[in-house]
Design a protein around this nucleic acid. Structure first.
Length: 151
DNA sequence: GCCAACGTTGGC
DNA sequence: GCCAACGTTGGC
């Protein structure tokens, strides 16, 4: 089982939104970055995911989701009316993928980016490094454990 | 709202 | 293949 972190803007889709979905699950579509896509493709059912709120007050990890379906073609790329439409992605050879995630838990408090930046054991993590914009990134077991220890 | 960092596009 | 221009992300 592997660990990941996924970013989302809570104004668009928050952890509470996931919790309120039927079955508490939702397809994670709209990823349009190759590195993030490759991470999606590596996900296995049962993988644990830190749910991160960006462009929020404050920004940080708010809880946990899990992967319930491995990567499959991102249908929003085929839909001209979707904000995620990508004419370069063809049904015969989909460029983008999505996974399904399910709500697991909400932390008793937000672990803020500010706090994470102060932890020496997390200094190598892409999340806390300047200019990092990757929306789906791997978390090592050690990093996962460190973050959970902050609660 | 601003702007730095980054990824992508497209002219050459 | 280089790189300037552009668009987007995301912290502040």
């Amino acid at each position: 089982m592997a660990y990941w972190l996924m970013k989302t803007e809570p104004d668009v889709f928050s952890l509470d939104d996931l919790k309120n979905q039927p079955g508490k699950k939702e397809g994670w579509d709209g990823v349009r970055n190759y590195q993030a896509r490759n991470n999606l493709k590596s996900m296995q059912v049962g993988d644990q995911v830190f749910f991160y709120h960006s462009n929020a007050k404050p920004t940080g990890i708010v809880g946990i989701a899990s992967v319930v379906r491995t990567a499959y073609p991102d249908l929003s790329a085929f839909d001209p009316k979707s904000p995620y439409f990508d004419p370069k992605s063809k049904r015969e050879s989909p460029q983008w993928v999505m996974v399904d995630v399910r709500y697991e838990s909400t932390f008793s408090r937000i672990i803020t980016l500010d706090e994470l930046k102060k932890i020496p054991a997390l200094a190598d993590w892409a999340l806390v490094q300047k200019g990092n914009r990757l929306s789906v990134l791997p978390v090592t077991p050690q990093q996962w454990k460190t973050v959970m220890g902050l609660l």
